[in-house]
Design a protein around this nucleic acid. Structure first.
Length: 583
DNA sequence: ACTCTAACCTATTCACCTG
DNA sequence: CAGGTGAATAGGTTAGAGT
């Protein structure tokens, strides 16, 4: 363990606690033979006949305790110390054990809700006809063969699976679940002809079994690029989409090109509400080209981002933060475009700006009971027929999923790539950034070296699961970074930054790609560099007043107000990084 | 700037349980 | 006995507080 001290402190507290109100407390390390709870234990008894530690027999949590723990977990999956102590009061575990239990419980949760892997998708697609190879390459080729192309042939190593594919899979496996799945995850799917599911070439359920060559290659490519790296992450994205992001859908534009459009989550208020509160937006945007050059791109013909109001009918601040401020455009098609940082930050809701905090009270004050009710309802709604539930069902019901030969938490990568697997947490090759970086970076460069810096921006754009807890409402609504938030790297990182550079953001990148993640929106190189004007497709189309243009112009000229200085620094840092200034 | 602490994470190991 | 599950460990990161 890197931190050797926490455990003793926990033990101390638990011992103190045990001396007080919890007579049932037991310290497994100190009392290996004690069995004070045998009376209470309702679990299989053989497991409880000793507490040798470690490597000895392991005790099982008593059923009664488990119930209590589960209850506590439902109300708060991440109890703080005080909450843990309260739990310790009620169960026959010490704080450390409770902590570990919650840790494992969360891990278990994530595991169950983990999106389908390419292998699993492939397995589902084949309906178990083929064994799922643990070799992702094998699987890739299988999919590629099936599709007549290999969208996953990109170096990211991840499959490109479109949403329709998953829908088909669900239709294929469990119609009734598919229904609820679709309903829950894509509330407006029926009204969107754009939805790939509704597209004639993929709609007929019979076509599931048909060779995928029938599919529109164009559509596949577009979807592939849009959803690159999303693979099985669709579930999480949809789930998140309900609360934090907006799922996107493909639409066929007037030019018959596929564009991604966004539709609001189930909890979202109507478009009318949206429109009524739209913020003015610029007609141009600062964009980062594939070559790493800053460009001003036109917003015309592209829907502009809308920042919904903080209406009580919609999800409260935080979700809107994700939905409004972090929804990336679906600019996947011709080129990569990055919005100005200010565009991201300016759209953050007033109270829920940036700033990470583990202070649960901050969240409590933010999410008052009423709002929590909304969130709870939403969560329940999503858990009922949600993608996660469906995937979990698939996992549990499908023998072809999760082949037993694979470790539960083993990365998708091959076992022989142990080192890479270990480093997978830094492996961002599935992201757009990775592709961007790979374009110019030496392939042998270690992920750590390659990833320094930029990931911070990704984190800023897409706070992920574990980051949620660290995003705290900003009391004054100040768009500036929280004083305690580490600043984005500007210029060469400091020594200490280097030491911890990869950071959580990197880890998160291999996690379900949220919708806001650029990985979902960026094209792969196979599309080639854009030759024309770069378009950014934003949430909804609305032209913006020219005042924003002026603002952008001032921004580009360096006439930046002090309050925008940070944004400018971010952009400058990005640009310098994109041009190879890694250090 | 640096260190320390607490919290979290992922990955892994391994005892236990079950079919 | 193989495989699944859960408890526990190891190693890593971050945030925040203190020096």
């Amino acid at each position: 363990m890197s931190n050797a001290s926490p455990t003793p402190s926990l033990d101390v507290s638990s011992e103190q606690h045990a001396a007080g109100s919890s007579p049932s407390h037991r310290d497994s390390s100190a009392l290996p033979q004690s069995l004070p709870q045998l009376d209470d234990t309702l679990t299989s008894g053989s497991a409880l006949d000793g507490e040798k530690h470690p490597k000895g027999k392991r005790k099982r949590t008593a059923a009664k305790d488990k119930m209590l723990l589960e209850e506590a977990y439902k109300s708060n999956p991440k109890p703080d110390k005080q909450a843990r102590l309260e739990i310790v009061d009620r169960v026959s575990l010490n704080e450390k054990e409770v902590q570990i239990w919650f840790q494992n419980r969360r891990q278990n949760d994530r595991r169950k809700s983990r999106p389908l892997t390419p292998e699993e998708l492939a397995a589902l697609r084949y309906g178990g006809m083929h064994n799922v190879s643990s070799d992702p390459i094998t699987c890739r080729s299988a999919i590629a063969d099936n599709d007549g192309s290999c969208p996953a042939a990109d170096p990211t190593g991840l499959q490109l699976v479109d949403r329709a594919e998953v829908s088909l899979l669900f239709n294929h496996t469990s119609p009734e679940h598919s229904q609820s799945f679709t309903d829950a995850a894509t509330p407006r799917v029926g009204s969107q002809e754009s939805t790939t599911q509704a597209r004639p070439e993929t709609t007929p359920p019979q076509s599931q079994e048909a060779p995928s060559s029938q599919r529109s290659q164009e559509g596949l490519e577009a979807m592939a690029h849009s959803f690159s790296s999303s693979v099985g992450y669709l579930a999480n994205r949809w789930n998140l989409g309900g609360s934090f992001s907006t799922p996107s859908t493909l639409v066929r534009g007037g030019d018959d090109s596929l564009k991604l459009e966004r539709f609001p989550p189930s909890s979202c208020s109507s478009d009318t509400t949206y429109d009524a509160n739209k913020k003015s937006q610029s007609n141009v945007r600062l964009s980062l080209s594939l070559e790493g050059k800053a460009e001003l791109v036109s917003n015309q013909n592209s829907p502009t981002r809308s920042v919904p109001p903080r209406s009580s009918s919609t999800l409260p601040g935080l979700p809107q933060l994700r939905r409004g401020g972090l929804q990336r455009s679906h600019s996947a098609l011709p080129s990569i475009t990055l919005p100005p940082i200010s565009a991201l930050t300016s759209s953050l809701p007033p109270r829920l700006v940036r700033g990470r905090s583990r202070d649960v009270h901050a969240w409590e004050s933010c999410a008052d009971s009423e709002r929590r009710d909304e969130l709870t309802a939403q969560a329940e709604n999503e858990s009922n027929g949600s993608a996660i539930a469906a995937i979990s069902l698939l996992r549990s019901s499908s023998g072809i999923l999760q082949p037993s030969t694979t470790k539960r938490n083993a990365p998708v990568s091959k076992p022989q790539q142990a080192h890479q697997a270990k480093k997978a947490k830094f492996g961002r090759t599935n992201s757009t950034y990775a592709r961007l970086e790979n374009v110019g970076a030496e392939p042998e460069k270690s992920p750590r070296e390659n990833l320094s810096g930029k990931v911070k921006v990704a984190m800023l754009v897409t706070p992920t699961d574990s980051d949620k807890e660290n995003w705290s409402p900003d009391e004054d609504g100040n768009p500036h970074d929280s004083p305690r938030r580490r600043p984005l790297p500007v210029g060469p990182p400091s020594k200490s930054q280097n030491a911890r550079q990869p950071g959580r953001a990197l880890q998160e990148n291999k996690r379900p790609a949220l919708l806001g993640n650029r990985a979902n929106t960026a094209p792969s190189r196979s599309l080639g560099a854009s030759k024309g004007a770069i378009e950014i497709f934003e949430d909804s189309g609305k032209k913006v007043p020219a005042s924003r243009d002026d603002e952008v112009e001032r921004f580009m000229r360096g006439e930046v107000s002090p309050s925008k200085k940070g944004d400018m620094d971010c952009v400058a840092g990005l640009l310098s990084l994109s041009q190879g200034a890694w250090r």
